[in-house]
């Protein structure tokens, strides 16, 4: 595989800073298709780098990145931390779930405080939908949304798209234009509370895929058909003809009341077993954003299928995508030619 440096796919997106004319990355919903493709293409070089024994660059040397996580996280925080460090930035993690927020400081004041410390990028996760956008409006540096409530988780959708692209490429089924036209993707699980589902619906559709959602009615958001998806309640119906099956976990921490009778009953209707997977297309790909609840939404033997499951590749692509996002969003501050002040706006 060749390295896809900056000139990877000329013509696919505008030159220089026009390729990604956003200060922040808050939502997939605010991106154009060519901007999504740009981030995916940019990530390819970091996939390559991350597979080398020496994974370090100095691209972001001297920059300070703050990971402000107002909600507990292990894998996303670690992924962003590794991404920042491999790019040479100074990375600081703020576990806001146990900090001054508990002492009554408002979110805006916390944002202003972070801003005063002159971060060059802030990565934020917050439990309230819209909170990351709210902070972005109060700070002077790029803000990356690492998940806001049940709204969006844009880097997750991007890494999923990249993982899918790599698997298709490995099978010789990837399209040269980077799109996934005609791919049928089933997302099954707690759609109601899932920011991963919302970002993935938008991202997969932008790349030309069709999206099916499957959940019991209580976990299916009302009016979601308006987003151009088809809605299923019987998992078997959704699986028929699917190229990709993306499983989501039950977000018990966001549930206000009882939404399903029991995990056991949920598994009975919605657990992804070998038998159910056989209803999808013959080589259908299995995905899961993690953390998995083995034996609930997915059986271990499905999660670990070497040719079908790309769950570990998703994690690998996560670091590359986050490196790409940090790199692209800090180009203006780093005065990269074509990305500077007044060069394109």
């Amino acid at each position: 595989m060749t390295s896809l440096q900056n000139s990877s796919s000329p013509g696919r997106y505008p030159a220089g800073g026009r390729a990604f004319p956003h200060r922040d990355l808050i939502s997939i919903g605010s991106l154009q298709t060519h901007e999504i493709l740009f981030l995916l293409d940019e990530a390819e070089q970091w996939v390559e780098l991350n597979r080398q024994p020496s994974k370090h660059t100095d691209a972001l040397a001297g920059l300070t990145i703050i990971n402000a996580f107002f909600e507990n996280s292990t894998r996303t925080l670690l992924s962003f931390e590794i991404a920042g460090k491999r790019l040479g930035a100074d990375v600081v993690n703020m576990h806001a779930a146990q900090s001054s927020v508990k002492k009554g400081e408002t979110l805006i004041d916390t944002a202003v405080t972070l801003n005063a410390m002159r971060a060059d990028a802030i990565v934020i996760r917050h439990g309230s939908s819209g909170a990351v956008g709210l902070i972005a409006g109060k700070v002077d540096c790029p803000v990356l949304n690492a998940g806001d409530g049940s709204h969006e988780h844009p880097t997750q959708a991007l890494l999923d798209a990249l993982a899918l692209r790599h698997k298709l490429r490995e099978r010789g089924e990837a399209s040269s234009d980077g799109m996934t036209n005609g791919l049928a993707v089933t997302i099954c699980g707690d759609i109601l509370h899932s920011r991963v589902a919302r970002s993935n619906i938008l991202c997969l559709q932008a790349l030309g895929a069709t999206v099916r959602l499957c959940a019991p009615p209580a976990l299916m958001p009302s009016g979601v058909e308006a987003m151009g998806v088809s809605v299923f309640h019987r998992f078997e119906d959704a699986l028929a003809g699917s190229d990709v099956v993306m499983m989501l976990r039950l977000q018990n921490e966001r549930m206000d009341g009882q939404f399903i009778p029991s995990p056991r009953e949920y598994r009975h209707l919605y657990g992804l077993t070998q038998d159910r997977l056989a209803l999808a297309k013959p080589q259908a790909i299995v995905m899961h954003p993690g953390p998995m609840n083995r034996g609930v939404e997915i059986e271990s033997d499905v999660a670990d299928m070497p040719e079908r499951s790309i769950i570990t590749q998703q994690v690998e692509m996560g670091v590359a995508i986050r490196m790409a996002c940090l790199d692209v969003l800090t180009r203006k501050a780093r005065k990269i030619p074509g990305w500077g002040e007044g060069e394109w706006v």
Partner: peptide, 10 residues
């Protein structure tokens, strides 16, 4: 409940 609340994740 409806499209807007669903899109915003509220």
């Amino acid at each position: 409940s409806g499209e807007i609340a669903t899109r915003l994740g509220l």
